[in-house]
């Protein structure tokens, strides 16, 4: 498949359900070869957007381009999609359901005979290959669902809330595979409402709330643009005076350190000036904002 600079381009996409606005005028570019996170609280429009990308529902207006194609149908064989609503044929065996999903993505028998054992092994399901889906535990069914998603070695992986319901071990396993896929030049798009997952994985993010874009772009850049007003310091001697400074909004003791929340208009340097001479400074660190904080801050500003 021809590699394209942008795996996905979403332009001015709108979607209403019975008069309720699910997605409003959303635009984003998703470069290929990266991990891209759709972030936002429940009901923000993440699943609706993903379903529109998959052409499962159609946007009221706007367009979605996949690898330069306006129709996803040609690209479907090279896409792996894990929906939020999960399920597989309960009566089929693990091996046959995976082979079936691969087959309808036009995989050949010879390809399947290698890919099926490989991916079952990767997710630790090899001993369950001949068991029926309904005999698997919930966690295993989750992993099986993931195998079904990646069986065709997709160029573009779209995962809707992939981490929900996973235990920490499987969570790391899944994250590891996602990172490995990026290393191999694949594009991974996933949605989550848990910001901390995105922070560790994403190269790019799209933050949405109530169907509208809050912010998008490279995660590092977004972080850089958001200076935090939290400073973590370690001082020798009495620190009581800090709380009384007019520029300080709040202080919190964290171990040996003190976390200081400054007045929003205040520069960190001003705090440093205030400290010099009054106390010996062992550490002075401007805390970088968490995605959670950025989100709160952005959504708060809009109001």
């Amino acid at each position: 498949m021809l590699m394209h600079n942008d795996a996905l381009v979403i332009e001015n996409v709108c979607k209403h359900f019975n008069g309720i606005r699910a997605v409003n005028n959303l635009s984003a570019r998703l470069p290929s070869g990266c991990i891209y996170g759709f972030l936002g609280p429940n009901g923000a429009g993440k699943t609706t957007t993903i379903r529109m990308i998959m052409n499962i529902i159609q946007p009221d207006s706007g367009s979605i381009t996949i690898f330069g194609n306006s129709s996803i149908e040609k690209a479907k064989n090279n896409i792996g999609y894990m929906p939020e609503e999960r399920g597989l044929y309960r009566k089929m065996t693990v091996r046959s359901i995976i082979s079936y999903i691969g087959a309808i993505k036009n995989m050949k028998r010879t390809e399947l005979s290698q890919a099926v054992p490989h991916w079952l092994g990767e997710l630790g399901l090899q001993d369950w290959a001949d068991k029926k889906v309904e005999d698997l535990s919930r966690g295993m069914q989750q992993k099986l669902q993931f195998v079904a998603t990646v069986i065709n070695d997709p160029t573009l992986l779209i995962l809707d809330e992939p981490f929900s319901g996973l235990d920490p071990i499987n969570l790391d396993l899944l994250k590891g595979i996602m990172l490995k896929m990026r290393e191999n030049g694949k594009t991974v798009v996933f949605s989550t409402h848990m910001m901390e997952h995105a922070e560790k994985l994403c190269d790019f993010i799209l933050l949405i709330n109530k169907g509208e874009k809050v912010i998008d772009g490279p995660l590092d850049q977004i972080r850089a643009n958001f200076t935090s007003n939290v400073v973590s310091i370690e001082l020798e001697g009495d620190t009581g005076f800090i709380g009384k400074l007019p520029i300080v909004k709040d202080t919190k003791k964290v171990g040996k350190r003190l976390e200081i929340t400054l007045d929003e208009k205040t520069d960190h340097q001003e705090l440093l000036h205030n400290l010099i001479g009054k106390s010996r400074i062992r550490a002075f660190e401007v805390k970088s904002p968490s995605l959670h904080e950025i989100f709160i801050q952005m959504v708060g500003e809009k109001k």
Binding site: E85, L88, T149
Partner: peptide, 16 residues
């Protein structure tokens, strides 16, 4: 049954 087992969306990711 397919609808209830929620397998539809996976199928639709491969076929129309």
């Amino acid at each position: 049954e397919e609808k209830n087992s929620r397998v539809i969306e996976i199928l639709l990711s491969a076929v129309t």
